[in-house]
């Protein structure tokens, strides 16, 4: 029934998927489109990416990550398995908790990566905060590697998130 307990569980699952698409969609845009395209863009046109598109994409990327974590934790709590999943199903003898737990931990690591590594380093690399040329170059490389790490983790993370009905 509308607005009963199972509806709210569904509602937060919907919000979780919406914000997850916002987050991982931008992550894949950075890794599959923007980073590989930068060397092909003439220098005088690069500011269109670094000053306009990248800062806007980073805004929706990092807030998408935050919203995905918040709605995901609420969803796990409403579903009654937050503790079991965070323990990776140890002591429960249930593969569902192990699978969703792996997904949750990878998602949490990825979100921490976004807010504590990628975003601060991108601010330096894009010149949104003060940094020397050397610092900018180094920050850009660290941000790229952290972003690539998240792209790598997104593959098993999404398997874990969507496979629980199979287990």
């Amino acid at each position: 029934m509308l607005f009963d307990y199972s509806w709210w569980t569904f509602f937060f699952r919907w919000l979780h998927v919406l914000s997850g698409v916002m987050w991982i969609g931008h992550l894949w845009y950075f890794n599959f489109v923007q980073i590989p395209s930068m060397p092909k863009i003439p220098d005088e046109q690069k500011p269109a990416i670094t000053k306009v598109i990248a800062p806007a994409a980073l805004f929706w990327f990092r807030h998408g990550a935050l919203a995905t974590v918040i709605t995901g934790l609420i969803l796990a709590y409403l579903s009654g398995y937050s503790g079991n999943a965070l323990k990776l199903g140890f002591g429960d003898d249930n593969r569902k908790f192990t699978a969703i737990g792996f997904g949750m931990w990878m998602g949490l690591i990825m979100a921490a990566n976004v807010w504590f590594i990628i975003w601060p380093k991108q601010q330096q690399a894009l010149g949104l905060v003060e940094a020397t040329a050397d610092e900018k170059k180094r920050a850009g490389r660290i941000a790229m590697l952290a972003s690539r790490t998240n792209t790598m983790l997104s593959i098993p993370m999404l398997y874990a998130m969507t496979s629980t009905h199979f287990y």
């Binding site: 890794n31 599959f32 980073i35 590989p36 990776l88 199903g89 140890f90 003898d93 249930n94 593969r95 192990t98 699978a99 792996f102 790229m144 590697l145 690539r148 790490t149 792209t151 790598m152 983790l153 997104s154 593959i155 098993p156 398997y159 874990a160 287990y167």
Partner: peptide, 30 residues
């Protein structure tokens, strides 16, 4: 030495490999 994550193809391959490792781990744990 160049980090394998600098290549997008290697990143995706590592992600698929990590998925296989995770699936095995899920079955090993239970």
């Amino acid at each position: 030495m160049k980090n394998p994550l600098e290549s997008l193809g290697k990143t995706v391959s590592l992600g698929i490999l990590l998925t296989v490792v995770m699936v095995v781990l899920i079955h090993v744990i239970h």
